[in-house]
Every structure is written in C-alpha cells, then in structure tokens.
Design a protein around this nucleic acid. Structure first.
Length: 474
DNA sequence: ATGTTC
C-alpha cells in the first residue's frame, strides 16, 4: 500500500480519501524520509481500516513512532463523533493509560553517578517489576473501587506523594466517568495486588540526568538545568486494564450485529459510543486509567523515597517535584474545531498548546509538557505542546521510539552479540534477563529522529533531552 | 502491553 501514499510536504504523507473501500476520512502519516522507509505495510492497512469506521471525524493521524498494533497501529490517533461514532478498545490499547511521569530532584549527576550501581540494586529491591509481579499493597474490593474513581489522589491520601503532585498530572490524575461497577470480577482479582508495580516490556523506572537543553527559557520555567537528576516512570494499568480491554473486546464482537457494524478487521471490534455497551466500556476504561494514574503516583514516590533513604537525605534536600504525568493509551472526550469528539490515542501523547485550560497554571504560557521516553540506552525527551497540534493531530504528538526489531529477533541478536557488549557501560537492573534482551537499544528506532519530526511539524517543541543513569526493567 | 498460547 505504500505506493498509494502521496507525499504532501516535508514529513507529511497522505492516503487520500477514496483510496480504500468505505474510507470516510484521509489518513495522514507524519514521517521523515528515513522513518517512511521503516513504515510497515500492515500499519498502513490498519490505519486505513480505521478510516472506514462509523462516525470517524476529520482524519486519522499516524505519528512517526508508528508500528503495527492490535487492530489499530501504535502511534495512531482517531477521533469519533459522540452522536454517531464508535468507541474502539483496540484503538486505545490493551494497556489502558500506559503513560509516563517525570519527577525532578535537586540532586546533581555527581551525587548519583558514582553510586549508581548500588542505588539501582536498592531500587530493584523496593520497586516490584516484571510480568505478574505483585506489590506490598493488597487491595480489598472496596479499596480497589476507590482507586478506580480517585486515581492518583487515592495514592496521595495513602501517603504516596503530595497534594501538589495532583496539579501536574493530565486530568489531575483522575478521569471523570469512571464507574468500577462496569469492571469485571476477573479484572478486580488481577488488580488487587499489582498497584505500585512496573510491569514488563518497554515499561521502566529510570534515573536520568538532564543532558542537553534546546529551549533555555522554557527549561528555566520548568526549573530544569543541565546535570540535574530526574526520575522517569513508564508504566500503565497492569493486569487490571488488560482485563478490561479483553472483556470489552469480547462484548464489542458480540454486539457488532446488533448495531449493524461491518468491519474490515475483527480486531477493530467496537461499539457505538451511545450504546449501553459503549458507555459501559467507557466507564470501565476510565476506571482502569485511574488505576494507572495511582500506579505511577506510587511508583514515582517509592523510587524517590528509596533514593532519599539511600543517600540519607530529607525530602527537602531531595527536592522531589512532579514535572508532569501523562497518558499515551487513552480515549478522551474533547472539543476540536467546535465538535465534541472521542479522541482515541494509542501510543500517542496529548500535546495541548499554551493557554489551553487543560494545561496546569504553572505551565500555561509554555504549553503542556510532552514526555517521550526512548529506549534503555539512548535518550528521553521533554517537549511542550504547540498550537499546530490542534490543527493537524487533534492535539496529539508521538509517544516513544517504536520498535524496529521483533522481540524474538532481539533475543537472537543478543545471543549472537552478547548482552555485556550491547549494554556497555549502561546500568540496567531486572529480576531476570529476558526483558532486557527484548529491550536492547538496537530493537528500537532512534527516538531523536521521532521527536525531530513532531518538532518540525510544530506539533510540540523540543525543550530538553535526558540521558539514563540507571534503569529498572521488568 | 499481558497470571507473555484461556
């Protein structure tokens, strides 16, 4: 299908409306020439499939870190009209509210670098990571219901963080319209002991240092300077959100006939937003999203507390300050160009511009922070949302590097090259070697190239780069 | 992503 894409301008390729059968809107791919070469046929097909869905509005947008996903590509943005559109679990993702948090500290690189190995070993002891890992927090059914409604606030009330953290979280760390009575017993069972755990795959807790600044003025307003130590958390809603997705994909498949929805791919199984099933999924999805906000709140706090105890310093000396926390797998009701839409972001980050009311007051004149984690060996980036995102991507940017090598291929590569040689002087801790082998830097696209594209398009502005000091993986 | 092929 690649030959059907038309290069409209630098970084913009379009699959014009009318190219595929039943297509309702065009599909825009935001790519450099280099990333265009890496674009997979199946990812194009998946984005094209979504452009045929009922009530899809404007266009489908695909970010430069695109890769094939379940039904809808990772890196995809789709908006559907509330009155006649659908809601698609596969277009939000299995890991509901997978997202990123960045915490600043007053520490300098030299405080951490000499002791980074011991520090990461300590963090490994305190922060549970890995598939099926469980935490110290055991939740009763009623407590879990509370988590699902209150989100990050629940964690703060239990002592995991501070009231002022909440102002620096997307949607204040608690999405409205969460109703855990629409969440299954299976999900409750899986969620009861996984709060405050990292998970697996590309999830991590990382100690980082501000490495390079591209916009001094904005970095200053964020209170960030070269050499400053930060904590980045990348995790989601664990088994709780996964089960919500599984449950509602089944419900969606079973309700397709009832609502006369015809699909090019069963993985895009969806429900009218204005249906009993669609509303049920929306309320369950928001519950899982709030679980993820609480999860990252706890993870970030425990990590900061561990660093503090390791260095034997006070909270004041540590200077813990939440910069921002955001979702990159989520469906949200937003108004774009005067229309009330459900914006599906799957591997895409909200990137609202300055003076948008959703941007925290402290950042109002610089725009919403956009946190882009890279792979374990390279860099992560902080950008801020720009006005053009509201014109060309429903206020969205990319979310990360994006895979280029399959997990299997990555493991074969490690067996051939040797893990020590690949990781060189990186400090990466984990309970097992499996995930690290799948997550080697070579398995990912260069995140620098990805953020360069969203910066060049005016979706989000590059502010600074962070480099890893030590990484905890699942 | 995921009690990693219920």
């Amino acid at each position: 299908m690649k030959e059907l894409l038309v290069k409209e301008s630098d970084y913009v390729y379009v699959l014009p409306k009318g190219t595929v059968q039943g297509q309702k809107v065009p599909v825009y791919f935001y790519l450099s020439d280099k990333l265009f070469e890496l674009l997979e046929e199946d990812a194009i097909k998946q984005a094209a499939n979504a452009s045929t869905l009922p009530g899809v509005e404007g266009a489908i947008y695909v970010m430069p870190d695109v890769h094939v996903g379940y039904g809808f590509p990772v890196g995809g943005v789709m908006a559907t009209r509330l009155e006649d559109g659908i809601i698609s679990p596969g277009s939000i993702g299995y890991d509901i509210n997978c997202g990123v948090r960045l915490i600043a500290t007053n520490l300098r690189a030299e405080d951490i670098v000499p002791v980074r190995k011991q520090l990461m070993e300590r963090i490994l002891q305190e922060v549970p990571a890995g598939v099926g890992s469980t935490g110290k927090i055991k939740l009763s059914r009623s407590e879990l219901r509370e988590v699902a409604v209150k989100g990050a606030r629940w964690a703060v009330e239990r002592g995991f963080g501070f009231e002022e953290d909440l102002e620096h979280i997307e949607s204040f760390g608690a999405l409205p319209n969460a109703d855990p009575s629409y969440v299954s017993t299976d999900a409750f069972d899986r969620g009861s002991d996984e709060l405050g755990t990292v998970g697996s795959g590309n999830h991590f807790v990382e100690v980082q240092v501000v490495d390079e600044i591209y916009d001094q003025e904005i970095a200053k307003k964020l209170g960030l300077d070269v050499g400053q130590v930060c904590i980045m958390v990348h995790s989601g809603s664990r088994g709780f959100g996964h089960q919500v997705c599984v449950d509602y994909l089944r419900i969606a498949r079973e309700s397709l006939k009832r609502y006369n929805i015809d699909l090019p791919d069963m993985q895009l199984a969806c429900m009218p937003i204005n249906s009993e099933e669609g509303q049920a999924y929306f309320k369950a999805m928001n519950s899982a999203a709030n679980y993820a906000f609480a999860n990252r709140q706890i993870l970030g706090f425990i990590t900061a507390d561990t660093i503090r105890k390791f260095l034997r310093i006070s909270w004041q000396e540590l200077g813990y300050r939440l910069i921002y926390d955001l979702a990159h797998n989520i469906g949200k009701v937003e108004i774009h160009k005067g229309k009330k839409l459900l914006v599906h972001r799957k591997g895409a980050t909200r990137a609202f511009p300055p003076y948008n009311p959703e941007v925290p007051p402290a950042y109002r004149d610089i725009g919403q922070p956009v946190l882009i984690p890279g792979d374990i060996g390279r860099y992560s980036f902080l950008l801020v949302g720009q006005p053009r995102s509201m014109e060309i991507s429903f206020g969205s940017a990319c979310h990360g590097a994006g895979r280029v090598m399959s997990r299997t291929k990555a493991k074969e590569f490690v067996k051939k090259e040797g893990l020590e040689k690949i990781l060189k002087d990186l400090v990466v801790v984990a309970r097992g070697k499996g995930t690290i082998m799948e997550e080697i830097p070579q398995a990912y696209k260069d995140v620098s190239e990805v953020v360069r594209v969203v910066d060049a398009l005016g979706i989000a502005k590059m502010v600074l780069r962070l480099r890893p000091v030590g990484t905890l993986k699942g």
